[in-house]
Design a protein around this nucleic acid. Structure first.
Length: 779
DNA sequence: AGTGGGTTTGTTTTT
DNA sequence: CAAACCCACT
């Protein structure tokens, strides 16, 4: 028996077609829970085993590092199983432990290690380590392979600095955060500052372009890139250098992209260049021994704020295929059977998403029986909401031995919502993990430690240098630093150049000279050993020699102890990384650390309740899901509520949440919650109304609503009673979509009358017919 | 030079 | 209601 037959037989016909696809373009439209990850994994295995594709020639893009890791593990397991059969005629798990280990390590060396599997960011960061020295931007700026990767807060402060210090602009009028966002968007569209200016020639656009240009200059001066550059620069490099593109084009013969609906323009461009070698004439494309295979679901596109554009997915067939409709072509496969959720949950999901206009028709087909009803809980406030959730999950766990804490997830729209649940979980001593929010790598001491490493690896990184130059305190004051910075600016060299020149320091720094020279020597000592010492050794020693550890130890406060603990944990993380990747270089670890996300630490089988945002939950599944905070203004979020397209994305987000649940789904909302320090009345999410009533049970007592509803119901809305029109200015009202408001004007009269209502949630006025069924007077 | 207190500002979502 | 930010004081 071959394992080949083994895994192909586990697939339905569509999945099987996807897995067996060899050359040319293919779009797999995969609904939630339809086994797309499986299709992706098996296809990679199939390419290697059945078509003898060299693992080195496969590029697979995943959405998170965690997904990449899991995919590698699964592929490794398939081949290790194979090898066990061939070599010992036995299943892998029946072999002795050391034999298993040996087989796995052999597969790791011959297959897993060679596969290019990762996120866009980590894959192309790696490619830039090879080729960035061949790149020049439009102003002739260059970078070297030891570049730093700046995180969002680094980028933020760079922009802020340019706005306030370099251009002397009013921070109030030119909000650095918004400008930073514009710059990021421009980069995600592939626009340089000049190109951005051309498209935005108005005053504000000119300012943004100028900041953008200054920002690029700063990045270059620091030999640093931001997240967006990791994609943008490869594209530019490939566009300007045919031979480099040619090299990677022939390297990556089979390209696979997961979550293709959340790809943005520049990522698409990158994929297009690599797969077509930059050739725009379709007649010239040669798919011999090559493929482009993308998997996605437009209904789960939830990253438009990051410039993701699901029309890229919708256009796949015309971009890469023959452009013929589905039936006449072999470039699209739909996976609609859902193997994850109970039928009740799927029905709810289907009817919810049908309210969207921007989609391709697709229905999730149940395979797993009806299951429990969905339960909707109306809570008095956020504490009561949390209370209900914790009680419920404790109860469920007691009743069902197959459930452990890890079977539960609490999903919410915004990170801030986690608080009340955390409090309740702690109080009832339920183990939990929070994904997202404050990350390990965002902690002060971790950033300090990484800054030391970055300066060793990339001394031009002035941002990191300034972070640590007087941390721990060594008497290098603000005035001294200012002086040295202006010297470096005058000579237009990195600050480090000044610091590492002893005579300059001695003439400029006065009293602090001694301390600076000592600091510089410490760093230099490690720079010299960068090739010989491992990342872990460098980290360990530099934290000792810089005095950082001593400072924390001598403080003795609980907080300092905690920090110390975290530094040690970082050391463990480096060791773990070195073990997993067999990469002991400092550069390797730093790149990994910058791109690590919190989600990556979510281990399965951890026996802890998971708390996370809906965005983080994408791609995950849990037996029991609590989707909380289903209120107007929260889900849908207040900032999306009056933009129809944004509202559809909120609905997709809700859809993602619903489809995470395997067995049971709970929906909750609160009547009242603290927002900005004051109590606010909330109204149920409009999405709740979009779910079929018969699927849902709840604690909401049917109550007599309004005079209007009672009056108009028997008439079916056709005949209006007098009361329908009996509104007056100053009436308080509730609208199911817009929330609470007050009638400010009555326009017209009789049956054609309309109401102008000022909604407090929206901060804005709306014109609404008095017969709108979503409108009711407030009790 | 570093802390402290008082003020302001802000909440989508993330690689 | 926080966290973050700023200024002034020690």
């Amino acid at each position: 028996m071959t394992t080949d037959r083994n895994f192909l037989s586990q697939l339905n016909p569509s999945q099987r077609r996807a897995v067996e696809h060899f050359c040319g373009p293919l779009l797999v439209v995969a609904g939630a829970g339809s086994g797309k990850t499986r299709a992706l994994t098996y296809r990679i295995a199939h390419l290697i085993r059945h078509h003898q594709v060299d693992p080195e020639n496969i590029l697979a893009v995943t959405f998170t590092n965690k997904a990449a890791r899991e995919m590698k593990e699964r592929i490794e397991a398939i081949f290790a199983q194979d090898l066990a059969q061939n070599k010992y005629g036995q299943r892998l798990e029946l072999l002795a432990e050391y034999e298993q280990k040996q087989l796995r390590s052999r597969i790791y060396k011959t297959i897993t290690k060679k596969l290019w599997i990762g996120t866009f960011h980590s894959l192309f960061a790696r490619i830039l380590r090879y080729d960035i020295n061949k790149y020049q931007d439009e102003r002739g700026r260059i970078w070297t392979r030891n570049f730093s990767i700046f995180d969002e807060s680094d980028a933020q402060s760079l922009v802020k600095n340019i706005v306030t210090k370099q251009l002397n602009l009013d921070e109030k009028k030119f909000d650095p955060r918004s400008i930073r966002y514009q710059i990021s968007n421009a980069k995600n569209l592939g626009l340089s500052p000049e190109q951005y200016l051309k498209e935005n020639p108005h005053y504000k656009g000119r300012v943004i372009a100028e900041v953008y240009d200054g920002y690029q200059a700063q990045l270059a001066a620091n030999n640093a890139l931001d997240f967006d550059d990791l994609i943008l620069i490869p594209v530019r490099l490939f566009q300007q250098n045919e031979s480099i593109l040619g090299y990677w084009h022939s390297q990556f013969r089979h390209i696979l992209v997961d979550e293709y609906q959340d790809t943005n323009r520049i990522q698409y461009e990158l994929i297009r260049l690599l797969s077509t070698n930059g050739e725009t004439r379709k007649s010239e494309w040669n798919w011999q021994g090559r493929s482009i295979f993308v998997v996605g679901d437009a209904d789960q596109s939830i990253y438009s704020f990051r410039m993701a554009d699901f029309t890229i997915l919708l256009n796949f067939q015309s971009d890469f295929g023959d452009g013929l409709p589905d039936e006449d072509t072999r470039t699209m496969i739909k996976l609609e059977e859902n193997y994850r959720s109970r039928e009740n949950i799927l029905q709810a999901a289907n009817s919810l998403i049908e309210n969207n206009t921007q989609r391709i028709e697709k229905v999730l087909k149940p395979t797993r029986g009806l299951g429990e009803q969905i339960y909707c809980y109306k809570a008095d406030n956020e504490q009561a909401e949390a209370e209900f959730v914790i009680n419920k999950l404790k109860h469920l766990r007691e009743e069902n031995p197959e459930l452990d804490w890890g079977s539960f997830a609490i999903l919410y729209r915004t990170n801030a919502q986690s608080r009340s649940f955390e409090d309740a979980l702690i109080q009832r001593s339920v183990p939990y993990t929070i994904v997202g929010g404050f990350k390990f790598y965002d902690r002060q001491e971790i950033k300090d430690a990484l800054a030391y490493l970055r300066v060793v690896s990339n001394p031009a990184d002035t941002v990191s240098l300034l972070r640590i130059i007087n941390t721990p305190r060594r008497g290098i004051g603000k005035a001294t630093i200012e002086l040295l910075i202006s010297a470096s600016q005058e000579l237009s060299v990195p600050l480090w150049e000044i610091l590492s020149d002893e005579t300059s320091v001695n003439t400029l720094a006065g009293r602090a000279a001694k301390a600076i020279n000592k600091f510089v020597k410490t760093i230099q000592e490690f720079q010299e050993q960068i090739e010989t010492l491992s990342a872990a050794e460098i980290l360990h020693q530099i934290m000792e020699k810089s005095g950082y550890i001593d400072e924390l130890k001598s403080k003795g406060t609980e907080e300092a102890d905690n920090r110390l603990e975290n530094v040690y944990e970082l050391n463990n993380a480096v060791l773990q990384f070195q073990q997993d990747t067999e990469d002991t270089t400092l550069e390797g670890f730093l790149a990994n650390a910058s791109l690590a996300s919190d989600l990556d630490n979510l281990e399965e089988g951890q026996q802890k309740v998971s708390l996370m945002t809906l965005h983080s939950a994408k791609g995950l599944e849990f037996p029991v899901v609590f989707l909380v905070g289903l209120e107007q203004g929260l889900l849908p979020h207040g900032r999306s509520i009056d933009d129809p397209l944004a509202l559809e994305e909120e609905r997709r987000l809700c859809y993602v949440g619903v489809t995470r649940a395997q067995e049971q789904l709970f929906l909750t909302y609160a009547k009242e919650r603290y927002t900005w320090g004051s109590r606010e009345t909330k109204i149920p999410s409009q999405f709740l109304q979009e779910l079929p009533k018969e699927l849902i049970s709840s604690n909401i007592k049917p109550k007599i609503y309004s005079r209007r509803l009672i009056a108009s119901k028997p008439a079916g809305g056709a005949i209006l009673s007098d009361r329908d029109l009996n509104w007056s200015v100053g009436d308080r009202v509730v609208h199911q979509v817009y929330g609470e408001g007050e009638v400010t004007h009555i326009l017209g009269s009789g049956k054609k009358a309309t109401l102008a209502i000022k909604f407090s949630d929206l901060g804005q006025q709306k014109i609404i017919p008095p017969t709108d069924p979503k409108l009711a007077p407030m009790q």
